[in-house]
């Protein structure tokens, strides 16, 4: 009686799970960002603000300081500038880590579900890598630009256009690349370890997680 219902016969031998073409991963990641747009924007805003702060401090440093370069007050101001840049970097690192950590942690159940559906750890890490990388890139470029733009406007108004030397412009470009790279790297560093951690959990544990 049972043998009639057992139409599936013995299942084929177990193979290895390998599939998830990059184009599909890209598509899923993009969709994931787009659909929870508000959440993505808030997460990205954390990254953006951090980088904007860093970028504004670095951009201010590009403009020549008025006064005698040997004056102790001017030297102290230079040191203060460096300190500010380091602090800015720290604040932005902590801010970005906080945003990304939360964004990944609240999706542990989703990660557990995907594993139940046959996702390899690699698939999950790929999805989060694309998502975090994209968000980090867009947010960092925006952040660099806002920081740079505001500081430039301030200098333009207070000191006039003569401060925009070729050196300032070329250094700004360099700053753009550095700020963006820092933003993307910190975003990935903050997002990937919790995603890897969640992917490595037994699915039952990831599914039990409540945030």
């Amino acid at each position: 009686m049972k043998s009639e219902t057992g139409t599936q016969a013995a299942s084929p031998a177990i193979q290895r799970q390998i599939h998830l073409p990059f184009s599909k991963a890209w598509e899923i990641s993009l969709k994931s960002i787009r659909i929870r747009l508000l959440r993505s924007v808030i997460t990205a805003a954390g990254v953006c603000l951090g980088i904007a702060f860093y970028s504004s401090v670095k951009t201010s440093g590009l403009f020549p300081m008025s006064g005698d370069p040997h004056d102790p007050a001017v030297i102290a101001a230079g040191h203060r500038q460096e300190w500010l840049a380091i602090m800015a970097l720290l604040v932005c690192a902590v801010g970005i880590t906080n945003s990304m950590l939360m964004a990944v942690t609240e999706r542990f159940r989703e990660i557990g579900t995907m594993k139940c559906l046959g996702a390899l750890n690699r698939f999950i890490v790929t999805l989060f890598f694309i998502e975090a990388g994209l968000m980090g890139l867009v947010a960092s470029v925006l952040g660099w630009f806002s920081g740079w733009f505001i500081v430039c406007v301030v200098h333009l108004v207070t000191e006039g256009p003569h401060v925009f030397t070729a050196h300032v412009l070329s250094a700004s470009l360099k700053q753009a690349v550095i700020s963006t790279t820092i933003g993307v790297v910190i975003t990935l560093l903050a997002a990937i370890p919790p995603a890897v951690n969640a992917a490595r959990m037994p699915p039952a544990v990831a599914l039990r997680t409540t945030v």
Binding site: S11, I14, Q17, I35, G118, L120
Partner: peptide, 25 residues
Amino acid sequence: ASELAYLRCHTIGYIFQSYNLIPVM
């Protein structure tokens, strides 16, 4: 790990009390 993933993908289907659908899909 990859054989286990294959098994979960092809041999077993899961249904949960709380559905566990992906909310954004």
